[in-house]
């Protein structure tokens, strides 16, 4: 879907002081953000996934923007949640961000024991933490700041 006229992703092409709508899509999501710009100036960003590099591009785009800007994030839950967390760090407020999730997708689990997050692709009540190998029970408690569900050491209360 990348059109020839679409600017490259690295925050370039965004004039300093932009106060329109930034539409960032992740993965193979189509051009879902279009109907959410409400006729305001619009800047598109397309990313494969939310990773340190693409999030830094998003941060630099937001760093060039001024109060008044809106952000539309489209794609899998885990990507748009990570992007929303990065946007909040940049000073964007919750009501200035629209999340367009394209369905379930993988979820991200935060380990409070080692503070590393682990991505879970299939629905599962438990996951082995990527950081410390603790078996984590997955809860419904979601942190918007971290963009992840809280995990905790499973079976910790059972006598071994």
């Amino acid at each position: 879907m990348r059109s020839a006229s679409m600017p490259p992703a690295a925050g370039t092409g965004l004039e300093p002081g932009f106060r329109g709508v930034i539409c960032a899509s992740f993965g193979s999501t189509g051009d879902t953000a279009e109907q959410h710009s409400g006729g305001r100036p619009r800047h598109d960003l397309r990313f494969e996934s939310a990773n340190p590099e693409t999030l830094s591009d998003l941060r630099s785009a937001l760093g060039r923007s001024h109060v008044g800007v809106r952000l539309v994030l489209a794609g899998p839950q885990s990507d748009i949640r990570a992007a929303a967390a990065a946007a909040a760090e940049c000073g964007l407020l919750e009501e200035e961000v629209i999340l367009l999730s394209d369905g379930m997708g993988p979820s991200v689990i935060y380990c409070p024991h080692c503070r590393i997050t682990t991505t879970v692709r299939a629905a599962s009540p438990e996951v082995a933490c990527q950081g410390c190998a603790t078996t984590l029970a997955i809860t419904d408690h979601f942190s918007r700041r971290i963009g992840a569900y809280l995990g905790y050491s499973a079976h910790a209360e059972e006598a071994s």
Partner: peptide, 9 residues
């Protein structure tokens, strides 16, 4: 001022 503020304002 209203048109030139950084996002944390």
């Amino acid at each position: 001022k209203l048109t030139t503020q950084e996002l944390g304002t």
